[in-house]
Design a binder for these strands. Structure first.
Length: 268
DNA sequence: AGCCAGGCCCATT
DNA sequence: AATGGGCATGGC
């Protein structure tokens, strides 16, 4: 049964939330409409006149996915004291950090490394079409078991390039450590994620933030480095550590505001 | 056409 | 711990 939820859009801007680079499985169906897929589930979103309508057969799942219980008005107001990111916060207001599936996020962000968003989306779509369960009008994300059926050559033929071997290995290793990692504090979880092939510092931070909801992580890619770069902050590691310390428990959200502002305005 | 993309692996120091 | 070369593919 399809259920419906109506949410004020001031702190849930659908376009920003989906197009800010944190998620790859969505489609724009109309000017104000999107479809979002997560694992084997889907939902529809429609934003108009100050409200978002969320429709799905799995309304509880997507209510959690969009983190609707978190108070972004309160969080945003607390962040206002950092005046150096005032512009970024205003520009990105309405972005929510998605609570994506841990496994799907891990695979997706391994694919994302040194890649562009269009290609990332198309590769993930091919994975779904070839090994995902057929649903009504779409394909599910392949289960870990199904993903393991791909040979390295088959993965390469999807356009994965040198990442094919990372996916091949990590979709095997991940299932073993998944439950263990998810219970660990962020720092320890990060150490474990870094052991996976194709997972470096930046990808690990994306997995922690978008796949485990850990706001105490601060992914730094080429855009983020440009945004923060200075005499002292001249490496991703230094930027990340500085911002984690400064923005504390909401660092991950700050990171998304900064990233969105930087990329949307193409600030080189 | 050539640079770049939500970087990582691996050897070397 | 830190640095640097090499790297598949395709979007723009």
């Amino acid at each position: 049964m399809i259920k419906e939820l109506k949410i004020p859009s001031k702190y849930f801007d659908v376009k920003k939330t989906l197009e800010c680079g944190q998620v790859f499985r969505y489609k724009k169906t109309n000017e104000n409409s999107y479809v979002v897929f997560s694992l084997d589930k889907k939902c529809e979103l429609y934003q108009k006149d100050g409200y978002v309508t969320l429709k799905s057969e799995h309304i509880d799942y997507f209510s959690n996915y969009f983190d609707l219980k978190s108070d972004y008005e309160k969080i945003t107001s607390e962040l206002k004291r950092f005046c150096e990111i005032e512009e970024q916060i205003r520009f990105g207001e309405g972005i929510r950090i998605l609570k994506q599936d841990f496994y799907e996020a891990t695979i997706s962000f391994i694919i994302s490394a040194n890649n562009n968003i269009k290609r990332i989306q198309s590769i993930i779509e091919k994975l779904c079409e070839q090994k995902g369960e057929k649903k009504d009008g779409y394909y599910a994300f392949p289960t870990a078991e199904k993903l393991q059926e791909f040979s390295i050559e088959e993965l390469k033929s999807l356009g994965l390039g040198y990442r094919a071997e990372y996916i091949y290995q990590s979709c095997r290793d991940f299932v073993i450590v998944k439950d263990y990692i998810s219970t660990l504090p962020t720092d320890s979880a990060r150490v474990q994620l870094l052991k996976l092939k194709g997972v470096g510092p930046k990808v690990a931070d994306c997995i922690l933030l978008f796949g485990l909801g850990r706001f105490d992580s601060y992914p730094v890619d080429t855009w983020m480095l440009k945004a923060h770069k200075s005499e002292e902050l001249n490496t991703p590691k230094k930027v990340s550590e500085y911002c984690l310390n400064r923005y504390g428990k909401y660092a991950g959200l700050v990171q998304q505001f900064v990233f969105y502002y930087q990329r949307e305005n193409k600030l080189k």
